[in-house]
Amino acid sequence: MSWMHTTFALILLPAIVVGMFRILRGPTAADRMVTAQLFGTCGVAILLLLGTGMGNPVLLDIALVFALLAALTTMTFIRRTWHGSGKKKHGHPIP
């Protein structure tokens, strides 16, 4: 049990809570999704710090699962919910 790492995790937790405001009033859907992605990375960091703080190395595996599955949500969001519209002015079209 190391209280220092738990304090670091406790510092990261309000970052999630403050980021909630961007979900509540993001103008576009992508702003909300980007905030959810930041939550995922913050959660990975909190899990790593808690794994040292609680002395439980199993938490590294949970962080690994989070890191694996974090990309899935954003990819699905781009492919299913938020395509580019018909007019392709910039960039390459998404296949």
């Binding site: 954003t74 938020w82 580019g84």
Partner: peptide
């Protein structure tokens, strides 16, 4: 995913 979001925003 950030690259995909930025490209999709440009296309929108």
């Amino acid at each position: 995913s950030c690259h995909l979001i930025a490209r999709s925003a440009m296309q929108k």
